[in-house]
């Protein structure tokens, strides 16, 4: 009986290894091994990234220590929001946002072709070959800020946590959509790394409570480029603060994600039909 179970488990493990997820894990292992070849750089770059990412929360602390505030938000509430923002970046940047740099540089160097001769989805290959351990510093920073904020806030009921997790999944989905748009642009707009800078600037607005912006700007950041979903909505959900037009905001994120997928594959089709 035990033998049959272990045989089944082994078969399942083998199946997993050859699945898309298995390829992704193998890609992460290879990238980690590559980065760990330079031990000092591996540790230092993660640490530096964490310090850089803590800049936002530090500014928040300075603002509040000087008597100013974001209306309707206490200092630890804002830190919680920024912790969520960092968590969202900390998951997306190392695990899939590398697709942007990977695509831009590969198209420029002509090595994007090497991914196209692999019998897997080009999206999977682009992500699997782009894991960035340096960005794990963002994740560590996010956990740190989130943990400190939660410790200083009252315990939240379970249903708040559930709503938060749902919003957080949408936050990750949204980051993925941004990645798809930028990678798609990188295919046709050869060597243009400014795409990334523009994105980072736009994304910065997601680090603050939605309510501090004007009504018209809130509309843009909720329904057109739904960056409010990155941290403002999940943080409000966890703190039990009212979120307006939730369903519309979530629908907008889904549309944004689908549009990102469509755009990315459209650009890949352009690449293959024009030859880059």
């Amino acid at each position: 009986m035990m033998q049959v179970i272990s045989q089944n488990t082994r078969e399942k493990m083998k199946g997993l290894r050859y699945s898309g997820f298995g390829v992704y894990i193998q890609g992460i292992k290879s990238s980690l091994a590559s980065r760990m070849a330079y031990r000092g750089d591996f540790i230092m770059s993660m640490f530096i990234m964490m310090i850089v990412e803590l800049g936002g929360p530090v500014i928040t602390l300075i603002i509040y220590n000087n008597g100013a505030s974001f209306p309707g938000w206490g200092v630890y509430e804002v830190l919680l929001l920024q912790g969520i923002f960092l968590l969202s970046r900390g998951i997306s940047f190392p695990f899939f946002m590398g697709i942007v740099w990977n695509t831009i540089s590969r198209v420029q160097e002509g090595t994007f072709d090497l991914l196209l001769i692999k019998p897997r989805s080009i999206l999977l290959m682009s992500i699997a070959s782009a894991f960035d351990s340096e960005d794990l510093g963002k994740l560590i920073g996010g956990i740190l800020v989130f943990g400190i904020a939660m410790k200083n806030l009252p315990a939240q009921p379970l249903h708040n946590w559930i709503t938060f997790f749902i919003f957080f999944i949408f936050s990750i989905l949204l980051m993925f959509a941004f990645g798809l748009f930028m990678a798609g642009l990188g295919i046709v707009w050869i060597g243009n790394y400014r795409i990334y800078d523009i994105f980072m600037t736009v994304m910065e607005f997601g680090m603050y409570p939605k309510s501090i912006f004007t009504k018209s700007f809130q509309t843009i950041t909720t329904y057109i480029i739904p960056i409010s979903l990155l941290a403002s909505y999940p943080a409000s959900a966890l703190l039990g603060k009212p979120n307006t037009n939730v369903l519309l905001a979530l629908a907008s994120a889904i549309v944004f994600f689908l549009a990102g997928l469509w755009f990315y594959f459209r650009m890949v089709a352009n690449y293959t039909s024009s030859g880059g």
Binding site: G22, Q26, S30, A33, S34, A37, G110, D113, L114, P119
Partner: peptide, 29 residues
């Protein structure tokens, strides 16, 4: 099909070729 490009490497610079072979094992099942 397979392809060898003399001027575009499929290996990974900082890790042994064997690790890159392992990656291809997963990719090609």
């Amino acid at each position: 099909i397979g392809a060898v490009f003399g001027q575009k490497s499929q290996l990974l610079w900082d890790i042994p070729p064997l690790d890159a072979f392992n990656l291809n094992q997963s990719i090609y099942r």
